[in-house]
Amino acid sequence: MSEQKAAGMTRRAIFEQKQRRRATLIAASSTAIVVLALVVLIPMAPGWEKVQKSFFNGAVLAKSFPKLLEAFKINIMIFAWSAPAIAVLGLLIALARDAKSPALFPLRIFGAAFTDVFRGVPVILTVYLIGFGIPGLGLPRPWNSPYIWGSLALILTYSAYVAEIFRSGIDSVHHSQRAAALSLGLSERQAMRDVILPQAVRNVVPSQMNMLIALQKDVSLLSFIGPVEIFRQAGVFKSLLANFTPYVGAAIIFLIVTIPATRYADYLMARQTRERR
C-alpha cells in the first residue's frame, strides 16, 4: 500500500500496468516459439539444402544485385511517365461518365465501355494484345517500341480503375455542396471544378496511392513483350547462373520501394478516417 502511494499510482493505473506486462510477455513468448519453430523445422525439410543454395545464395545475390538495381531504373522510368498519364486519363474518363449534357451522351457511353473493357480484361492480356498487336501493324521506328505500347496498355488498364475511384470520390462529396455552389449562381461545370472535384480528389488520395503501388509492380508485366526491366534481368541471371536468388533480389528491391509506400498510404487512410469522425 505504501509502495503504491510512493509511486503515485492509482489502483486503476497499477492494474493496467500489470495487464500490459502480461500482454507483452505473452506476445514475446508466442513470437519466440513461432520463430524457433521456423528456424528449427525448415532446415529439417529434406530439400532445404538445395533451396538454400538456389534461392538464398549470398554470392549470387552480391553478383546480380547491382545489375538488378540498374534494370529497376527502367521500371521507374516506365512508372514515371505512365502514372501522370493515368491520373489525367482516369479523371477525364470519370468526368465523361458523369457528363449530363445530352450533346456529351456519346462520351458517356464511351466512358462506360472503356471502364468495362479495361477492368474486365487481365492486365497481361492487354499488355500482350496492345504490345504485340500495334507494332505488328508495321510501324516505323521508334513507333514500334514495346516501351510505348506496353506503357499504353498499362495506362489504359489503370485509367479504368482510377476513373472508378475518382467517380466514387465525386459521389462522396455531399450533395449540399453542389446545392450551395449552384445557389450562388455558379454553373454546373464551375461547381464541379471549383467545389466538388477538389474535395473528391482529396478524399481518394489514399485509394489512388494503392493504385500507384499496384502499378509499380505491374510494370514488370512489360517484360513479356521486350523491355529488360528488373524481372527480365533477374530471369537473365537465373539462366546464366542456374540459380533463383536473383528473383529474391528483385523481390527485395520491390519491397524497399513498396513497403514505405504502403505504410504511407495506410497512414493517409487512417488520418482521413480520424478526420471524418
Binding site: 449552384l182 450562388l184 449562381g185 482529396r202
Partner: peptide, 21 residues
C-alpha cells in the same frame, strides 16, 4: 436559365454548407 436568377437571390442553409477546402 436558373444560373442568372440564382445569382440575384442569396440563400443560407441550416448546415452552413461552406466549402471546406
Amino acid at each position: 436559365d436558373p444560373q442568372t436568377v440564382r445569382a440575384r437571390i442569396g440563400i443560407v442553409f441550416q448546415n452552413f454548407n461552406l466549402f471546406p477546402h
